[in-house]
Structure formats: C-alpha cells, structure tokens
Amino acid sequence: MDVFMKGLSKAKEGVVAAAEKTKQGVAEAAGKTKEGVLYVGSKTKEGVVHGVATVAEKTKEQVTNVGGAVVTGVTAVAQKTVEGAGSIAAATGFVKKDQLGKNEEGAPQEGILEDMPVDPDNEAYEMPSEEGYQDYEPEA
C-alpha cells in the first residue's frame, strides 16, 4: 500500500510541476504579447503594419512553449490582441483601416495563427491545408 501511495504522490508532483510550467509559459506569452502591443503603439504610420505582424510573430513563438489545451486559448487571445492593436492603430490615425491585415508588401496577414497546427491532446499534428499553395516548377 505504501508503494501505491508513494507512486500516487510522485504522479501528483509531476502534474503540479507540469501545471506550473504551463502557467509560466502562458505568463511569458502574455508578456511578449504586451511587449508587441507597446511596440505597435510606438510606431509611426509606416511601421504600424509591420508592428502588428511582430506582435503576432512574438506571440506565436511563445505559444510553442505552452502545451496542451492552453495553446488553443493563448492563440485565440493573441489573435484578438493583434486585431485590437490594429483597431487602436486605425482609431489613433497611425494607419488607414484599409491597410490593416496586410503586410508591407500588401499581402493579407489573416491566418497567421489560424494555420498553425495545434492539437490540445498532444496526440497528432496535421499540416495546414494546401489550398493556398501553388506547385513550383523550376525553369529549365
């Protein structure tokens, strides 16, 4: 019985440690998101679009440190934060509304985080759909 109880105690310690790591990862992701939003706020009209992409990228980098179902929630929060940063930029006159959601080359930025393969159960990952990809044929 002692062996059984000791095993359960060790398992509990492992769960607590994993929860603490997840909590730490979420806190880091939130900190990076805040950094990115402050970065966007300090940019001029020309830099705002690039700044919004930076927020998304920093958040995406930190999301990889967070495991399990938390990833889905962090990704949703990050996307809403990026959308909010863009709205703030438009409201303050840093950028025109028609410039939001495009990178410096004018290509749409939507789907940055949505296409990231995420499995809350950590069982399997699927690649994003290939609808947006084109076949590449090298020139002879």
Rank of each mutant, 00 (worst) to 15 (best):
M1R: 00
D2H: 14
V3S: 05
F4R: 00
F4T: 00
F4E: 00
M5R: 13
M5T: 01
K6N: 03
K6M: 08
G7F: 06
G7D: 00
G7A: 03
L8V: 05
L8N: 00
S9T: 04
K10W: 09
K10R: 04
A11R: 00
K12H: 06
K12G: 02
G14C: 13
V15F: 02
V15D: 00
V16M: 15
V16K: 14
A17M: 12
A17L: 09
A17R: 12
A17Q: 07
A18K: 02
A19V: 12
A19T: 04
T22L: 14
G25Q: 10
A27Q: 14
A27D: 01
E28R: 05
E28N: 03
A30D: 00
G31C: 01
G31N: 09
K32Q: 03
T33V: 14
T33G: 02
T33M: 15
K34L: 10
K34I: 05
E35N: 11
E35H: 06
E35C: 09
G36D: 01
G36I: 15
L38Y: 11
L38R: 15
Y39H: 06
Y39M: 06
Y39P: 00
G41D: 00
S42L: 08
S42N: 13
S42G: 06
S42D: 03
K43D: 00
K45D: 00
K45E: 00
K45P: 01
V48H: 00
H50V: 02
H50R: 14
G51S: 06
G51M: 14
G51N: 04
V52Q: 01
V52T: 01
T54Q: 05
V55T: 01
A56C: 15
A56S: 11
E57K: 08
K58V: 07
T59A: 05
T59E: 00
K60C: 11
K60Q: 06
E61R: 12
Q62E: 02
V63G: 01
T64H: 12
T64A: 14
V66E: 01
G67I: 13
G67R: 10
G68M: 06
G68E: 12
A69H: 09
A69G: 05
A69M: 03
V70E: 01
V71H: 09
V71K: 06
V71F: 11
T72W: 06
G73V: 12
G73T: 13
V74C: 12
T75G: 10
V77T: 03
A78M: 14
A78D: 01
A78C: 10
Q79S: 07
K80I: 07
K80R: 07
T81Q: 02
V82R: 10
V82Q: 07
V82P: 02
E83Y: 04
E83K: 13
E83L: 07
E83D: 08
E83Q: 14
S87K: 12
S87A: 15
I88C: 03
A89D: 02
A89P: 03
A91G: 05
T92Y: 04
G93M: 04
F94T: 04
V95G: 08
K96V: 11
K97I: 06
Q99F: 14
Q99N: 08
L100H: 03
G101W: 13
K102L: 12
N103K: 06
E104W: 08
E105N: 10
G106I: 12
G106Q: 05
A107G: 14
A107I: 06
P108D: 15
Q109H: 12
L113N: 02
E114W: 05
E114D: 13
E114H: 08
E114S: 11
E114R: 05
D115Q: 08
D115S: 11
P117W: 11
V118P: 13
V118Y: 09
D119M: 14
D119K: 04
P120M: 05
P120S: 08
P120A: 08
P120C: 08
D121N: 05
N122I: 05
N122G: 03
N122D: 10
E123Q: 10
E123H: 09
A124M: 14
A124P: 04
A124F: 15
Y125T: 10
Y125E: 05
Y125M: 04
E126N: 09
M127S: 05
P128S: 06
S129F: 09
S129C: 07
E130N: 12
E130F: 09
E130L: 07
E131L: 07
G132V: 08
G132Q: 10
Y133M: 08
Q134G: 10
Q134N: 08
Q134T: 03
Y136L: 10
Y136F: 15
P138L: 06
P138D: 06
P138A: 10
E139R: 09
